[in-house]
Nucleic acid binder design. Structure first.
Lengths: 253, 253
DNA sequence: CGAGCAGTTGAGAGATGTCAAATACAGTGG
DNA sequence: CCACTGTATTTGACATCTCTCAACTGCTCG
């Protein structure tokens, strides 16, 4: 199945055949990018929009003291910079974590698509708003959860996001993220992340080796992490069910 | 001069007379709400959009252990829930911090406005994206800054945001936020916030009494907090200057 | 086989949290 | 104007979490 992005959207929206086709046609220009390379830099205002097809990337910022802070993970099906054009410039950078396949779509093509297909427009907005909701949840997590629960919460989130694009089998997924990167994500030290992972392993909450994460008992991990998936907005709402084709509410905001 | 929202937008966009008028006409239904009251609750899907006219509010979430986490401050000129309709339900709540004047605009009116006025549409998108950029910055702050710098950073941010809506005079603004609320914002304890504030006062970085915050030397505080205002996207970009009326890029995404 | 990351572990330091109490302040009713 | 009540602020002593520094181990890849 080609497009994780379409797969993700179709969990919640019924795309028409025309929309699916248009999306696929727009996604022909694929770039292969090795791991640990910048996709987009702070200050850029790219004329293409980037969509992750394969691999992991992250949004990050470097602080004056040299520290790095990772503010988001981008997994297959996620857009990197759908809205930069409105802001005029990236206020952070995006780097690959492992080697990635990235689709580049000209900005005008995106504009045409959203102008022509209301459901698609809504779906793209939805994707952006979910990213924002994830950000809020991370903020809560950092502020009010202990290190072990933060890690567990993140693993639960990735489980669900990767499930939505078919990258989970048997509660196992590949996690191409280093302990130092995890630390930069959660505001911890790689040393401490290491200890926390040991704890989680000892409690048999996770099995993690060679970049493969298995969760023996998902329910238990969710309880431990105090994970509530509603912020991912994966379930269709009443409104969606009422107006599946989306046309009644096809306003452009 | 009625609308802080228009004031904020006009820093960056040139609204036409018609747009200004349309906005004002849409803003007639004003509600007065006492402090510490929920404006919108998690799970709601309100049919009106709320715009803060006066006073402070915040986005927050309550955790199972009873802890509260504040994820955003909403000041005059900020929208509370412009996009809920796309997600279908609020995934967090919004409460007033002090008594507020809130404008309610029917969702359809907003849709009509953005459909009729491309610049306005862009401006609303811009406002939403700035909120997201703030969120990212807070995340970085929590992860990688010490408590005193976090507090200082927040004070710098509020200075600039309030300045943009004319609520700062002589580097002084009213800060209707309790130390416990600050703590819930920064992921600290109110006890610790108190000590940090004492530190900042001793270093003469801030003067804070009776909900009035003065910053004797803004430059110095910014350096201390390591504050870079670019994430607020207050300065117009080259693109904006090129196409002030916005019509060339009036796509609807 | 060696070089270079990534992961692991230990000992001690520092920042922030917890608990508990005292003080200041704002609004209310007499 | 005062006493009264509840909330916000302030302070101290101590506990805990996470960081720092430093070393060691184990992969992976050339």
């Amino acid at each position: 199945m080609a497009s994780p992005f379409i797969q993700k959207l179709e969990r919640r929206f019924s795309l028409s055949e025309a929309e699916r086709r248009a999306l696929l046609q727009a996604s022909t220009k694929v770039r292969l990018i090795p791991g640990h390379e910048d996709l987009i830099r702070e200050g850029d205002d790219p004329d293409h929009v980037h969509l992750i097809q394969k691999g992991f990337a992250c949004r990050y910022k470097i602080l004056p003291d040299g520290g790095r802070s990772i503010m988001a993970y981008l997994v297959p099906g996620d857009f990197c910079d759908l809205h930069v054009s409105v802001l005029g410039a990236m206020d952070h950078s995006i780097a690959t974590l492992n080697s990635c396949e990235v689709v580049q779509i000209p900005r005008e093509t995106v504009a045409d698509l959203t102008a022509s297909y209301p459901t698609l427009n809504r779906a793209l907005q939805w994707a952006g708003l979910v990213d924002e909701a994830i950000l809020r949840t991370w903020l809560v997590s950092m502020g009010r959860r202990s290190a072990d629960k933060q890690v567990a919460h993140l693993f639960c989130e990735l489980l669900m996001r990767l499930e939505a694009v078919g990258l989970v089998t048997g509660n196992t997924y590949t996690l191409p993220i280093t302990q130092a990167e995890l630390a930069d994500t959660l505001g911890l030290t790689s040393v401490h992340v290491n200890r926390v992972l040991r704890e989680l392993r000892q409690q048999n909450l996770i099995v993690l080796q060679r970049r493969e994460l298995s969760i023996p008992d998902v329910k238990r991990l969710k309880v431990f992490a105090d994970f509530n998936p509603s912020y991912l907005h994966l379930e269709p709402t009443q409104r969606d069910r009422r107006g599946q084709n989306g046309s009644e509410h096809a306003h452009n905001l």
